[in-house]
Amino acid sequence: MDPSVALLTIFVLAVFVGFEVISKVTTVLHTPLMSGANAIHGIILVGAILVVGHSDSLVAVVLGVAAIVLATVNMVGGFVVTDRMLEMFKPKRKPQSSSDPGSAPAGPRGADK
């Protein structure tokens, strides 16, 4: 198969997988899902590493280093933020046994301080 047709085939199939895989999502998960998907396109980091690794010109290296920093921010930040959001959805320790609301716990790990 012609290499560029092979890539096109992969592209088209991936479009359908992308459509199918999240066809039904509750609104509750819209924000974390968007954030998680956002982190996944941080995979551009791999591309940025490759272009810098094969560049000699100063301009290319400077731009490429910027691209690596940005891509890393996208990937690392994206996954960490998503995890923090989803942390909030973990099962509760004890449902409504505290009759004294004054002792309400200050939230998991005081994450939102």
Binding site: P3, S4, A14, G18, I22, G47
Partner: peptide
């Protein structure tokens, strides 16, 4: 995904396209 095409890198094509498609639905 398109940059994956430029670099001839399958993983970028797949990762980018997945987000593009899923993001559109979302």
């Amino acid at each position: 995904a398109a940059s994956g095409y430029v670099l001839d890198n399958v993983l970028l094509v797949v990762g980018g396209t997945l987000v593009g498609a899923a993001g559109t639905i979302l």
